[in-house]
């Protein structure tokens, strides 16, 4: 049993890919790794990747748990818009940033609970259940902002998106702390195990005495809370709640981050750290595209190509090849040569 090395081995593909994409950044922009300290904040492309990756990373934390239960949460982008709108509305109405943050979290939590009840209690398929809020949520956010970009000047709230803590942009601190916190919470308690069990075989888990309904609801609740935080950060970053655009299509990036993190959409074993690396990989790809100075018409094609390559490298078949390669390379005893059949199916 190689327990101490197991986590590292699990993360190896993501770490290698991240390194490769960062190297690509370096190739298109030689000063990529330069970090300066100016105006009391760290300043550099690497910091930008960490900072701009925050919304996707936050969503990926919740999404990882949801996907581990064999579910999916399509509503997170819309929940971001709602949370941002609620936070903006509260400070515009003259309350403090703490109230705004709590209000946004309450709104996100309510959305998550709603999803959880639809999935766990009413047994609606997750993709359908969360689609409801994905479609309706942005409308709710527009009702809150009354159709405009709700601009605010509350320094405390703005600090959450655009400020720094010890020189590090606040969003970076928030997502790293939350990622570490949730990872700690699921691995130091039995939550992780129970969530995985539900994702792999819900019926067997129920028979083993796992309270699947409550756990499923909690998982969507966490996803809603993560989305709310992401929504507050995005709104704070631009000092305004943009109900039309905040978090638009970000649910897909979050799902992609989870997948790049090597987590199966069919549920089961999960790694939040790997998903967070996945979010950083996506952001690094975005960064490379922006820095390359290519005409914007190429953005999506290049992004798609890079991600395709990443997913192909991670495919189980390629993994099996590598396993065979390692097994035959690392075996000192000359084995009788038998034709190795590797049919590409």
């Amino acid at each position: 049993m190689a327990a101490p090395h197991a986590p590292l081995r699990r993360l190896a593909p993501q770490i290698i890919i991240l390194a490769a994409v960062l190297a690509l950044n370096l190739a298109v922009f030689p000063d990529f790794f330069r970090i300066e300290f100016q105006n009391g904040r760290l300043f550099g492309n690497l910091i930008d990747v960490l900072n701009r990756g925050a919304p996707t990373a936050l969503l990926a934390i919740g999404m990882t748990l949801v996907i581990a239960t064999r579910g999916i949460d399509l509503s997170v982008g819309a929940v971001m818009a709602i949370a941002g709108a609620v936070a903006a509305k509260i400070v515009v109405d003259g309350h403090g940033w703490g109230t705004a943050l709590l209000g946004a979290l309450a709104a996100g939590g309510a959305c998550g609970l709603w999803n959880g009840v639809l999935v766990a209690w009413l047994r609606i398929q997750p993709i359908v259940a969360t689609l409801v809020l994905m479609v309706a949520g942005r409308g709710v956010a527009q009702l809150v902002t009354e159709g405009t970009i709700l601009t605010f000047l509350n320094e405390g709230l703005i600090h959450l998106g655009a400020g720094t803590i010890l020189g590090m942009p606040t969003p970076v601190v928030i997502w790293i702390a939350l990622g570490a916190g949730v990872t700690w919470a699921v691995r130091r308690t039995a939550l992780g195990l129970l969530i995985e069990a539900i994702g792999i075989n819900e019926s067997a888990s129920r028979l083993a005495g796992i309270n699947a309904k409550v756990l499923l609801t909690c998982v969507y609740l966490v996803s809603g809370l993560c989305a709310a935080l992401a929504g507050v950060i995005v709104a704070a970053d631009i000092k305004g709640a943009d109900a039309n655009n905040a978090g638009l299509w970000l649910e897909l990036d979050a799902i992609l981050a989870v997948v790049i993190g090597g987590n199966s959409l069919l549920g089961g074993r999960f790694s939040i750290t790997a998903s967070l690396l996945g979010a950083l990989i996506i952001q690094s790809v975005n960064s490379a595209i922006l820095l390359s100075g290519m005409p914007p018409e190429f953005n999506l094609v290049i992004k798609a190509l890079i991600i395709l390559v990443i997913l192909v490298i991670q495919s189980p078949r390629i993994g099996h090849w590598l396993y065979i390669l390692r097994a035959s390379g690392g075996d000192p005893a000359p084995r009788r040569k038998t034709p190795v059949k590797e049919t590409a199916r």
Partner: peptide
């Protein structure tokens, strides 16, 4: 298979 083991665990 369906009601007992959690296959991937």
């Amino acid at each position: 298979k369906t009601d007992g083991i959690i296959g991937d665990l």
